[in-house]
């Protein structure tokens, strides 16, 4: 993921120090892997070297001293350019699931049972995500992250059903 750009976006709200950035990153993107503090630190240094952020000061709130960073005009420009771009629509094929299902259908045997198992596993994960998002303390970000995952898993399931139907039609045609 574009960690430097995410950090720039988080700094758009105002000047922040490294630990704050890590915390906000993990909070806002609960579906993503937590950001190691070391990576925040090294990324910030690279951004500063390239002139996208600048040191705004140093604070000390009981703990160790922390360097506060802020966006430079160049950084703002870079951020705006990123937000204006669109994400290339990934075809998402070539994933492990795709390969496994296709191979199950190709290799013959009880493809249906394999698909049913896959469906059950998917649904189990979807139930977990649904529980997470309907929990009374779920944040808006957590709900959005769960929705994102749920819709993708739903797409997998629907594709699997479709694959079975298409294959059944094909077999019927060949047997005719």
């Amino acid at each position: 993921m574009a960690t430097p750009l995410v950090l720039l976006a988080l700094l758009a709200e105002g000047a922040k120090h490294g630990y704050e950035l890590k915390r906000e990153h993990d909070e806002r993107l609960p579906g993503a892997k937590p950001l190691p503090y070391g990576q925040v630190y090294s990324t910030l240094q690279r951004l500063e070297r390239d002139g996208f952020v600048a040191v705004a000061g140093v604070v000390q709130e009981g703990g160790p001293e922390r360097t506060v960073y802020e966006l430079t005009p160049k950084g703002t420009e870079k951020l705006q350019a990123w937000l204006a771009e669109t994400e290339p629509p990934l075809p998402y094929v070539g994933g492990a699931l795709f390969a496994r299902v296709i191979m199950a259908l190709v290799a013959g045997g009880d493809a249906r049972a394999a698909l049913d198992r896959q469906r059950a596993a998917h649904l189990e994960r979807m139930r977990e995500l649904t529980r997470a998002k309907t929990a009374s303390d779920a944040s808006a970000a957590a709900v959005l992250a769960s929705d994102f995952a749920l819709l993708h898993l739903d797409a997998d399931l629907r594709w699997m059903e479709l694959a079975v139907r298409r294959l059944a039609d094909l077999t019927e045609e060949m047997n005719r």
Partner: peptide
């Protein structure tokens, strides 16, 4: 709807 089914146990 799979997403509705995921609401069940």
């Amino acid at each position: 709807d799979n997403r509705i089914a995921a609401y069940a146990d």
